[in-house]
């Protein structure tokens, strides 16, 4: 159990996919302009990562070595297509705004990376911990980035995802005064680079302070 917790916390902290490993930056940059997007993307990535890690880990002894990568890609692509179909049918607005980045999870290097580096060499329980850790680490990073971008770029936060899914109330607030003159650059592409770059620097700095 101690090792489960260790594998899990590793993904959030020391090997955070976005801030430390700098993996999966393409979708992180592209979709993080709104919190809705970040939540949807995170859910999709966690689901695909968890399912593919479990299957790959369970099948690791029967997968022929030379067909390793094609097999992983087929397994990952299956789950991604599944998520795409479900999103298209049940959360169409999210499907529209994630656009090409949803099917592109197939080639997301976080997922293939975990399959190759971890799940194909470790038992199922450890792979679940690894997938959840890396997945939650990715989700937290994406949520942090999109929170800052949406807040600065539009002057407020609005989440309508849960409203569409469960008819729960929508969540929104605006910063008075600031919302009239938001820093629009933060919802555009340059803002993504600025926010991710500054956050990376911050986490590096924190990491170095800890080591000293």
């Amino acid at each position: 159990m101690a090792s489960f917790a260790k594998e899990f916390s590793k993904g959030i902290g020391v090997s955070n996919p976005i801030f430390i490993l700098a993996l999966g930056l393409c979708p992180a940059l592209a979709v993080s302009y709104s919190l809705d997007n970040a939540l949807g993307m995170s859910a999709a990535v966690i689901f695909v990562l968890l399912c593919s890690n479990v299957i790959i880990s369970a099948a690791r002894k029967i997968v022929p070595k030379i067909m390793r990568i094609p097999t992983f890609i087929v397994i990952i692509a299956t789950f991604v297509t599944l998520v795409t179909l479900v999103f298209q049918a049940y959360v169409p607005t999210l499907y529209q705004s994630l656009g090409i980045y949803l099917p592109l999870i197939v080639v997301n290097c976080i997922i293939l990376g975990r399959a190759e580096a971890f799940a194909s060499k470790n038992p199922v329980i450890g792979s679940i911990a690894d997938a959840l850790g890396i997945g939650v680490g990715f989700a937290l990073a994406l949520i942090l980035i999109s929170f800052l971008r949406e807040l600065l770029g539009t002057g407020g936060i609005s989440i309508s995802l849960f409203e569409q899914l469960f008819n729960a109330g929508s969540l929104s607030f605006t910063l008075p005064a600031f919302s009239e003159h938001p820093l629009t650059i933060f919802v555009l592409s340059p803002g993504a680079f600025l926010v991710i770059g500054l956050l990376m620097a911050l986490f590096k700095w924190i990491g170095r302070k800890k080591n000293d």
């Binding site: 029967i62 022929p64 067909m67 097999t71 087929v74």
Partner: peptide
């Protein structure tokens, strides 16, 4: 075997 395996997976 590799061919059969991948065919089965697909």
């Amino acid at each position: 075997y590799p061919i059969l395996f991948v065919t089965l997976i697909v």
